[in-house]
Design a protein around this nucleic acid. Structure first.
Lengths: 138, 138
DNA sequence: CCAGAATAGATGTATATACATCTATATTGC
DNA sequence: GCAATATAGATGTATATACATCTATTCTGG
């Protein structure tokens, strides 16, 4: 199952990133921008939880995005935290990238059909939750 | 959908690799060994197709596995090709790793249920095929 | 209040992965 | 048969990702 998901993730990433290439955004970066739109300002650790990604892996990705000016960071009240949020440049970047993103996504949804599309979103979420809780326990 | 698959793939990879850590195999490496058991000797390009992975990405992963002694390589009749196959050390490595892999997989299957498990395998395969054919076309 | 434990990220290191480009070989059109 | 073209991988470069370990900060028991 892990292999199946990894294979599909590779295939989808190639398809989506091909569509996104003109915008200069990678799949992970666009996902982070989208999350920040909905979540507002969050700590790096919280962002990692939302993405099921090791929070220290985000250190590098967020540094790239901060250098590009798409996000802004500041220290939290807890000074160990780094709190990130969308910058206006990031908002603009996302807005310009979304049409291509939505085109490729709509085409996939068309090929899959509404029923399978919905099933997949539900199932992937379910699997993520299971893996999240099982992963930690031996 | 791309983001969902990538998130789930990360979560699953963390879970599976945690179980595989004593064996020293990464998820991708175990997948390759399993594919080679079934496929016998294949070219690097063909292996890339089976995994939906860019064949030049395999250059590095296969080099690691060859150094570790898990696979053997030779030139094909077409001298541009590299044909890879499981070595006996790779077979042994896989055999020792499989129990842990099967335990984590069985636990996940139990949590998901047989019906969802089967749906997921079918759906991920379907999505891979769609992405594979759509990815190339504008 | 303070020493020890816990937590949030930063950093070092390794693998995974893609694409552009380069090289070696093969195929093809004439 | 050879020049032009196509193909299989190798290599350079960039991002993605995890974990172990380190540092700075916070929390907690006494």
């Amino acid at each position: 199952m892990c292999g199946s998901f990894r294979r599909t993730a590779r295939a989808l990433t190639q398809m989506y990133e091909r569509a996104l290439r003109p915008s200069g955004l990678r799949a992970t970066q666009l996902t982070i921008l989208q999350v920040l739109v909905r979540a507002g300002e969050v700590s790096q650790g919280r962002l990692g939880e939302m993405l099921a990604m090791d929070s220290t892996s985000l250190t590098r990705t967020l540094a790239i995005m901060r250098r590009a000016g798409w996000i802004a960071e500041r220290r939290g009240e807890d000074r160990r935290e780094r709190r990130v949020r969308l910058s206006s440049a990031g908002e603009a970047k996302l807005r310009r990238a979304l049409p291509a993103w939505e085109r490729v996504q709509a085409r996939l949804r068309g090929k899959l059909g509404q029923r399978e599309w919905g099933s997949l979103l539900k199932l992937t979420h379910h699997v993520t939750e299971i893996a999240r809780t099982q992963g930690g326990l031996p």
